[in-house]
Design a protein around this nucleic acid. Structure first.
Lengths: 122, 122
DNA sequence: CGGAATCCGATAAGATACTG
DNA sequence: CAGTATCTTATCGGATTCCG
C-alpha cells in the first residue's frame, strides 16, 4: 500500500515565486503528489490545502486532456476514482525536477533582485 | 556588430502549446532575442510580432526587477536604451533550453492526446 | 465520494492614442 | 526612439451551493 500524502508537503513552496511555470497553479503539486503512485481525489485535496473541488477538477481534466495523467473510475459504493501519472507525465516530472534545482540554486538571487528593486523605488 | 534579429524567428513556435511557462507570454522569446547580446527596444519589437509597447515594457520591467536582464540608457539624441541578459538570465536560458528539448521530444504526444480527447468528446 | 453549476474578483494581455 | 496613459477584454483561480 502507498504511504498517505504528507499534509504539509507543500508548506515550504508556496505558489511559484520562481519565473517558471508548468501548467496551472496546482499542476506541479499534483504531479508531485502522484509521483509515488495513483491517488484519489480527496487524497489530493489534503496537501493541496484550500484547493476547491472545482479548481482541482479543472486541473486534473486539463492534465488528462494533455495525456499527463490517467483517470480510472471503479464502480463501487461509495464511488472511487484514481489518478495516475502516464509515462508522459513522468517525463514532465523529470523536467520539473530540473526546474526545482534551478529554483533552489537561483531563487535567492531573484528575491534579492526584487528587494533591491523595491528599495530603489523609494 | 551583432547580427540583426530574424523577423521570423518565432513563427514556428506560437504561444506555448507546451505545459511549460517561463515568466509571462513574451519572456521566453525576449530571452532568446537577447541570447547573442544586447538589443534595443525597437529591435525586440521586430520578431515579437504584434507585441504592443505597453506589454513589451511591462515584460522587460518584470525581468529587470527579477534580475534577469539589465537596462542601460545612453543619453543621446535620439535616445538609446539597451537590454542585456544578466548571468542569472543566462542560467535561466540554459534551463529554458531543456524545456525546448522536452517540447521537441514530447509535444507531438501532447497534441495527439488533445486530439484524442476532442474526438472522444463527440 | 467525487464531483457539477453558478457567480465573482484579480490579473494578464491587447487596442488605441499620445509624449519627452 | 522609447516609451506612457487609458480603456477594454479574456483567462484564471476562488467562493459557494447542490447532486448522483
Amino acid at each position: 500500500m502507498l504511504e498517505p500524502l504528507d499534509p504539509d508537503m507543500f508548506t515550504g513552496c508556496p505558489p511559484p515565486a520562481a519565473p517558471i511555470r508548468i501548467g496551472g497553479k496546482w499542476t506541479p503539486m499534483i504531479m508531485r503528489c502522484l509521483e509515488a503512485g495513483p491517488r484519489r481525489f480527496t487524497e489530493l485535496q489534503i496537501p493541496l490545502r484550500g484547493v476547491t473541488p472545482k479548481v482541482l477538477t479543472e486541473s486534473l481534466r486539463a492534465m488528462e486532456r494533455d495525456g499527463l495523467l490517467a483517470r480510472t473510475t471503479y464502480d463501487e459504493i461509495p464511488p472511487r476514482v484514481e489518478y495516475e501519472l502516464t509515462d508522459l507525465g513522468h517525463s514532465l516530472l523529470t523536467f520539473m525536477d530540473a526546474g526545482c534545482a534551478w529554483s533552489r540554486e537561483h531563487l535567492p538571487e531573484v528575491l534579492r533582485a526584487r528587494d533591491a528593486w523595491h528599495s530603489a523605488a523609494t
